[in-house]
Amino acid sequence: MKSLDKEHVKHVAKLARLRLDENEVSKYEIALNQILEEIEKIENVELTTNVELIAPTENHDLYFHDTVKNELKRNIVLKACGVDETHEYIEVPKVIADEEN
């Protein structure tokens, strides 16, 4: 069942600030519908137990013990975010929002 059309793709692209040409719109219309179809399959899973699955592993109590390691150098962090390495902050488009954030 096709649940997502070209207009939806354009709308999502607009929200995500992506510029898509018509070929790309068609391509993503197919891809996104395939994803939705996969998700629909979940509806068919038979639930024979009421036990809530929290984690996909039965291991528990996996911790690390308060050690500091693997910190990244700032220039590497900034470079990966497309920010000039000499800066201090990662800059994103202006956000107008609540102060507590």
Partner: peptide, 15 residues
């Protein structure tokens, strides 16, 4: 495992 400490250098206690 990043350091949990105040720093005047932004984006340095980061993994």
């Amino acid at each position: 495992t990043a350091k949990n400490e105040f720093s005047y250098e932004p984006n340095t206690n980061v993994t």
